[in-house]
């Protein structure tokens, strides 16, 4: 079983430190949730792990099975098994979903190997059916003119096809109505299993009603300040983030 180990991570955007010493280990098969108020570095941390060029890791390390991934390019990290479900997925005009996912899967094959087209479409259609995505979608350009819910479902579809080992899901619940939230959550639940470690980044408890996490962490001012099980999320929902702040100030 593999694990991704985040050790004392410090991340800055320009000169500004955002993440200030975050440590967390996610094993395959586990579902973690990180909650916290806006601006505490939740998105920054996940993008830094994926290798976004605007985010500088100033201290600490990220390891998969003991090997640091910090020297790897974003695409190498992706192929090593890291998937980031974006809060605001990018539009790629003119590139169909089918071709995009196919290119991404092709990129995972060895030189000279060709993806089997028939098998690919079979798999794609099966995943689309389970996510209740219309098959006409395959010929639409990636995220181009999609509604918020469509974009999020498209992220989950990519995740289902690419089969990462570790998925960082950045506010996947934001912008979804109740039905879309249910479909997306079911999709994630469906993928949940021994081969996948998940980190859910969210403001709200409601996503965690659908996907019950094994661990809940509270992030504040660039650090994890409290960890617990699913009851922590409920407690947080009841008492609000101020409770954490006060507790933190008292210690």
């Amino acid at each position: 079983m593999s694990a991704i180990e985040i050790k004392d991570l410090h991340v800055a955007i320009g000169d500004k430190p955002i993440v200030k010493g975050l440590s967390l280990t996610i094993k395959q098969g586990e579902v973690h949730a990180i909650m916290g108020p806006n601006g505490t570095g939740k998105s920054t941390f996940s993008k830094a792990i994926a290798g976004h060029p605007d985010y500088t890791i100033t201290q600490g390390d990220v390891l998969i099975d003991g090997q640091s991934i910090l020297a790897l390019e974003p695409d190498e990290r992706a192929r090593a098994g890291i998937f980031l479900a974006f809060q605001y997925p990018c539009e790629i005009p003119g590139v169909s979903i089918a071709n995009f996912i196919r290119a991404a899967m092709q990129a995972r094959l060895k030189d000279g190997e060709e993806l089997d087209a028939t098998g690919y479409y079979k798999q794609l259609y099966a995943q689309m059916d389970s996510l209740k995505i219309d098959r006409k979608f395959t010929s639409r350009a990636v995220n181009d003119g999609f509604s918020g819910g469509e974009k999020k479902r498209c992220e989950i579809l990519q995740m289902a096809m690419l089969k990462p080992r570790f998925a960082f899901m950045d506010e996947t619940d934001s912008g979804l109505d109740i039905d879309a939230l249910r479909i997306v959550s079911e999709g994630i639940e469906h993928m949940r299993g021994a081969d996948l470690g998940i980190l859910l980044i969210t403001h709200y408890q409601r996503l965690l009603n659908h996907i019950v996490p094994d661990f809940v962490h509270v992030m504040y001012d660039g650090r994890i300040v409290k960890s617990g099980d699913k009851s922590l999320a409920l407690e947080l929902e009841a008492k609000g983030y101020d409770w954490v702040k006060t507790e933190l100030a008292a210690s």
């Binding site: 290798g51 992706a78 790629i92 003119g94 996912i101 991404a104 899967m105």
Partner: peptide, 26 residues
């Protein structure tokens, strides 16, 4: 945009593959 390239790289495409995909899309 850099964001578009990063998005595609995050899916496992190299920077060059991402660029050509963007251009081919155009």
């Amino acid at each position: 945009s850099e964001e578009m390239i990063f998005y595609m790289q995050q899916r496992g495409l190299t920077e060059a593959q991402a660029m050509s995909l963007a251009v081919n899309g155009f």
